[in-house]
C-alpha cells in the first residue's frame, strides 16, 4: 500500500489514484507587473484529500490560494475545480461553482455588522429558498459541529480568536461544500486552540468527506492534518509529496522551513557598505 493510501490521522481512508481529481492546476504562471510570483505550478488534489500548502512569507502561497478561489486571473496556465476551468466560466457558472466551495479566511472575514448566526446563514439566505426555521436548524447543526453552540446571537467583535475561526468554518461549511479552503487556520492562536482547530479540520473531512486545501506556515499543524504537503518557495513548488517524504526531503530549503531555520544570505562586504552609504558616498 502506498503511503498516500494509508488511513490518515483521523482514520479516514486517504485519497488515492482511484478517486476523482477535484482540483487541477496546470502550468500556472502569475506576474505582478514585472515580478513573477508563481512559476509553472502543477498540482492535483483528489477527492477527500487534505493538501497543505506551506511556504515562507512571499513564497506565493496566498497568491496560489487566490487563484484556486478564482479571485485572480493567471498570466498563463489553467485552474480546474471539479472539472471546470474557472477562468473560462461565466459569472453565473462561477456563482454555481462557488456554492460547492467553502472558504475559511485567515482573520475569519466575518461581517462585522451581522451576528454570528446571520454570518453563517448568509450563504443559505442568498442561494437557497429554504424557510427560515430550516435554515436556523442547519445553522445550529453546523455550530454544534464546530463547537460554537449558543454563540449565534453574539457579534463578531465579542468573539475570541479561536471562536472567530470556528465561526468562519461554520459559515464555510454551511452549504456542505465539496471543497474547503482554509487560509492560515491556526495562525495567531495559542497551541491548545490551534490544536483544536487542526482536530476540527480532520473532523470536517471525516464527517463530510470534503477535499480540503490548507495554506499555512505552521509546521505542527501541517504535519498533523496533511495527507500531502506542497512546499512553495519563491513561486515554485519545491516538493509535493506525503508528509513522511516531505519530512525526509533532501532539499535544504524544505528542511529550513520545517525546522524553522532562517536562511542566512552570504554578505558581500563591499555591496553591503555601498547599500548603507548610497547617495552619501560616491
Amino acid at each position: 500500500m502506498r503511503d498516500a493510501d494509508k488511513p490518515g490521522p483521523d482514520g479516514h481512508e486517504k485519497t488515492g489514484p482511484h478517486r476523482d481529481a477535484v482540483i487541477e492546476v496546470e502550468n500556472l504562471v502569475t506576474h505582478y507587473g514585472e515580478h513573477r510570483v508563481l512559476n509553472d505550478i502543477n498540482l492535483t488534489v483528489r477527492a477527500g484529500e487534505i493538501l497543505v500548502i506551506m511556504g515562507g512569507s512571499g513564497s506565493g502561497k496566498s497568491t496560489l490560494l487566490n487563484h484556486l478561489l478564482g479571485l485572480l486571473n493567471p498570466t498563463h496556465g489553467t485552474v480546474r475545480l471539479l472539472g471546470e476551468d474557472i477562468n473560462t466560466l461565466s459569472l453565473l457558472e462561477m456563482t454555481d461553482l462557488r456554492r460547492k466551495m467553502g472558504v475559511a479566511f485567515q482573520g475569519g472575514a466575518l461581517f462585522s455588522s451581522m451576528t454570528v448566526g446571520d454570518n453563517i446563514l448568509l450563504p443559505l439566505r442568498e442561494h437557497t429558498r429554504l424557510d427560515e426555521q430550516t435554515m436556523r436548524i442547519m445553522m445550529r447543526l453546523k455550530m454544534e459541529v464546530v463547537n460554537l453552540a449558543g454563540a449565534e446571537d453574539l457579534m463578531p467583535a465579542e468573539l475570541s480568536g479561536g471562536m472567530i475561526k470556528r465561526a468562519a468554518f461554520a459559515r464555510a461549511v454551511i452549504m456542505d461544500p465539496q471543497i474547503l479552503f482554509c487560509d492560515e487556520p491556526s495562525a495567531g492562536l495559542d497551541p491548545i486552540v490551534a490544536s483544536s482547530i487542526d482536530k476540527l479540520i480532520l473532523d470536517l473531512r471525516a464527517a463530510f468527506d470534503m477535499t480540503i486545501v490548507v495554506v499555512t506556515h505552521e509546521r505542527e499543524s501541517a504535519l498533523a492534518i496533511a495527507d500531502r504537503i506542497c512546499v512553495l518557495d519563491r513561486g515554485e513548488i519545491l516538493v509535493l509529496d506525503t508528509v513522511e517524504n516531505v519530512k525526509n526531503s533532501p532539499e535544504p530549503r524544505v528542511q529550513d522551513l520545517l525546522n524553522r531555520r532562517a536562511e542566512v544570505p552570504e554578505v558581500d562586504p563591499d555591496a553591503y557598505l555601498a547599500r548603507l552609504t548610497r547617495g552619501i558616498l560616491s
Partner: peptide, 16 residues
C-alpha cells in the same frame, strides 16, 4: 473596512 478585513473577498467566494 470590509476590504482590509477580507470581507469583500468573502462575499465573492460565497458567490455574492
Amino acid at each position: 473596512t470590509m476590504r482590509i478585513t477580507q470581507e469583500i473577498d468573502a462575499l465573492r467566494v460565497i458567490g455574492i
